[in-house]
Design a protein around this nucleic acid. Structure first.
Lengths: 347, 347
DNA sequence: TAGCTTTGTGGGAACGGTTCCACAGACAGA
DNA sequence: TCTGTCTGTGGAACCGTTCCCACAAAGCTA
């Protein structure tokens, strides 16, 4: 590991300037010198010290990905983990190495390290903490936000069109005959859940079929467990309402609710149709598979890195919000067309 | 960002050596100087440059996690992602930042970067590539392997007791009355799948109930899709065999198979019991929830970092293999005790 | 009072690269 | 032959730290 450019120079009988020139490929170097130096480098498996390079170039070619986690383990999260995955893949092709940190609440210690480590840029996933944004701006580190809140101005955002997605969901459920729909709406402090609910209600109202507040239940978190728990808690109210369908503002909640329904021997979609939002892998795997509004996580991850790279290279970046259009994915959980009376077939 | 120890020294009216001493806390510095310097540091939000530090200390406090991916997106993988998660969490408390790279096949470009970036250590997850191990040993970077193959000697390993887990599974299924069991065994080139199968067969044989080769099918990958596909392909053979239970060498395969069974309106566990191995989150979420042999992924992740840290600090590390004991987790997919005749209730 | 230790501080080399600049030789054009 | 450009190379400063060493002042002991 303690092999330096100096040793290479020594063996090749040239100065370290020359070796440096050969490696970088810029500046003059005779073909013979070039060959000789390269041969020695290969032979000794010399790898330039990226730290030393970064010191002078002021570029580390490292970026940081900071994921705000709440209770859920995050790298393995079916939604954020997927985004992380495609960031890592994209980073490889653009020659960045990526630091991954998860932070919860205010103890953004691991985020602070990013500054000390002098990352070239940051990708923030999910929530944003004012405290951290302040630091980022103070240190003038380029950054983009993926699927985060939009209340800080001048931030480059990559978001899903959650509003439009909600509307798509409404259109679809209306289209296959549902009129009386129960909603499981995740934490409304979270931009996505908020917009998905708003979009959905908006879509329903647009077709003269407004959703009353009483048809909405609010799981305390966007998790499977909360979906299950909330459905269980609302069960009698649900039965009384004679609902034919359930729309959840994300897949995990939908799957949790579905699990409870199945335990009550409710047939899906024959008795109740269930629809989610996100398009996580597991939505397809469950039985029945879940109809959902699919977010292009892969593309969001990839583009966040491309955008960040542009920011780092100080190229002009047009606009400051990239919106992704989600896509309706019809699966078993809503497959059956209910009869147009729209009545519940429960009981 | 261009705030250096020099500027701090200038403002405090001391030399940079003194500032350095104040920051590190070692060496003499009068209380007044200490206070003054600290105040300026806080005021200016100075953050020491980790690159420069690393240059002289020869320690970056960065580690690399390299995950060998095959087809599946890896950070979001329910098994490896979980391990990654707990590594990241543990790293934070030990003051390491972590680079995450995924590599497939021989193009270990992003692994090479790890050397240039001078990571203090490496954690290799899943498969190992001879090529990479050679590099690692050449550069003398401390490393540990999590859940990998054991054919390279002198490597620090953290593995699950897959063999014993397989035996546990056999004991359990036998214990609840199953005699005629179908096995879905993942890629036998993979240590885990191989040992789980071996352990299971061994356990069955030990109770005078050997599994014939004809009762084993081999999905080509350890994925949900392959589990589904294989079950579908083996369907008639399965029916003919009058099996009462299925054991898969990992949860994903089990869940895939279960999906196919449910589509055939097979009742689980009433007609067929299904059992997996891994203990991924989704095993619990599915309907019916999946009985499995749970691997302590969290602890594996955490301990891999602790072990690596010891290696980095050159403390003596006893032994070179840490084995984790998996745990039987009984859930709905096997809940029913079949009658002791052990006959299939299919058809 | 001489000598030693303790406390406090600053100078400068080193870490391993990049890059600017100087310089030398070859070669071309006037 | 002189000047100018091109090619090829080495020396040295610099990036931002740490840390060794020198040095000075003060306090203690004999």
């Amino acid at each position: 590991m303690d092999l330096t450019i100096k040793q290479i120079a020594l063996r090749a009988g040239v100065s370290k300037s020359t070796v440096s020139r050969v490696i970088s490929g810029k500046g003059y170097a005779s073909p013979e010198t070039r060959e000789k130096v390269n041969q020695i480098i290969n032979e000794l498996q010399y790898k330039p010290n990226a730290l030393a390079r970064a010191m002078v170039s002021q570029r580390t070619n490292n970026i940081g990905v900071i994921i705000f986690r709440e209770e859920y383990p995050i790298a393995s999260h079916p939604f954020y983990g997927q985004i992380l995955d495609s960031i890592i893949t994209a980073a490889e092709s653009l020659n960045y190495s990526v630091f991954v940190a998860t932070v919860r609440e205010m103890n953004s210690r691991s985020a602070d390290y990013m500054f000390e480590k002098r990352v070239d840029g940051l990708i923030l996933i999910s929530r944003l903490r004012k405290h951290l944004i302040d630091s980022i701006q103070h240190f003038k580190v380029p950054y983009v936000m993926v699927n985060g809140s939009t209340d800080v101005s001048g931030v480059f955002h990559l978001v899903n069109n959650d509003d439009g997605g909600g509307r798509k969901a409404a259109d679809y459920l209306l289209g296959i005959g549902h009129r009386n729909i129960f909603i499981l709406a995740g934490p409304q402090t979270h931009r996505s859940h908020h917009l998905r609910l708003a979009g959905f209600r908006d879509g329903m109202s647009g077709h003269n079929n407004p959703i009353p507040d009483s048809s909405i239940a609010y799981p305390a978190a966007s998790s499977f467990e909360e979906g299950y728990r909330t459905m269980k808690q609302e069960w009698s109210r649900f039965l009384d309402g004679k609902y034919t369908a359930i729309f959840a503002t994300n897949d995990m909640i939908a799957l949790g609710a579905m699990k409870f329904l199945l335990e009550q021997f409710i047939r899906i979609p024959e008795q109740v149709a269930v629809m989610g939002f996100d398009g996580i892998d597991y939505a397809e795997m469950f039985s029945p598979s879940l109809t959902t509004i699919g977010v292009d996580m892969k593309e969001m991850g990839r583009q966040s890195l491309v955008l960040l790279d542009n920011l780092i290279r100080e190229e002009t970046v047009s606009g400051n919000t990239v919106e992704f259009e989600p896509e309706l994915i019809v699966r078993q959980s809503t497959e059956k067309i209910v009869d147009l009376k729209g009545e519940s077939s429960l009981l």
